[in-house]
């Protein structure tokens, strides 16, 4: 593992909100035919600033917890770090293999079998066919689903689906791990297993960025913490000063 790092400089992200109307051609055509004055007031896409002038530097060994109210930009930041959103200003540079555990159901096809879903999800996560086949046994064993893996996922209970999704999502080799809420799925036994696996993953990964509302969880896993408030980030502080940040709310 070379120098794993996240470097975010002056990141600003704005979301244009295209209203339902704006998605229809009529409005845009109307603008052309009716003329600019009327159109300008009705079709201009509103922009929401999701993140503004955010700076962040993380190196191997950093485990950053993100706190903040709903809509404060935590998920947006995670998605930007995963490379899905392009910055409007500033830049994001991530060195190392990224694994984003933002949505367990990503790329899951309910009508496909468990095994097919493992393959598909693995491909999306960037594994080669060979890597997936190599890991298949391990994933299958961890999911604990045994013969059910040959059945379509829609026949699974919610807990079983979550187990499989979790097993695949966490099978990746990653240097940078992005998580939206600590994933807790399945029954008590599985939660213990899941917990251990995630810890293992976090230990192997150079950097963890975890967004959570649970202060206890953050204390347990993170060594740094940052607070987002309306898209504006606080300084990155040591986890021991979490209370200060929470109190500032």
């Amino acid at each position: 593992m070379t120098d794993v790092s996240i470097k975010v400089t002056d990141l600003t992200l704005r979301f244009p909100v295209y209203g339902v109307d704006a998605k229809s051609l009529k409005k845009n055509l109307a603008r052309v035919t009716v003329g600019g004055r009327l159109g300008a007031s009705t079709t201009g896409a509103t922009e929401v600033t999701a993140l503004s002038h955010l700076n962040l530097n993380l190196r191997a060994g950093d485990r950053l917890g993100l706190i903040g109210h709903n809509g404060s930009g935590k998920t947006t930041l995670l998605r930007a770090l995963s490379g899905a959103y392009e910055p409007d200003e500033g830049q994001i540079e991530v060195r190392g293999r990224i694994a984003a555990l933002l949505d367990l159901s990503l790329g899951i096809d309910p009508s496909a079998t468990g095994v097919d879903n493992i393959r598909l999800r693995g491909r999306i996560a960037g594994m080669s066919s060979k890597e997936i086949e190599d890991k298949m046994d391990e994933i299958a064993e961890f999911s604990g689903l045994g013969p059910f893996l040959a059945m379509p996922m829609k026949t699974y209970s919610a807990g079983m689906q979550a187990r499989l999704a979790f097993a695949v999502a966490t099978a990746v080799e990653a240097d940078v791990l992005l998580m939206d809420e600590w994933i807790s799925v399945g029954d008590a036994d599985f939660q213990k297993l899941a917990h251990r696996r995630l810890l293992n993953l976090v230990e192997r990964a150079g950097i963890l960025v975890l967004s959570s509302h649970d202060a206890g969880l953050l204390r347990l896993y993170c060594n740094k913490v940052m607070r987002l408030e309306g898209g504006v980030a606080s300084e990155v502080k040591d986890i021991r000063r979490l209370d200060e940040l929470l109190a500032a709310a």
């Binding site: 910055p87 293999r97 990224i98």
Partner: peptide, 10 residues
């Protein structure tokens, strides 16, 4: 690549 990602503003 899988190892390096750079995203910047316009």
């Amino acid at each position: 690549s899988g190892q390096h990602m750079l995203r910047t503003g316009r």
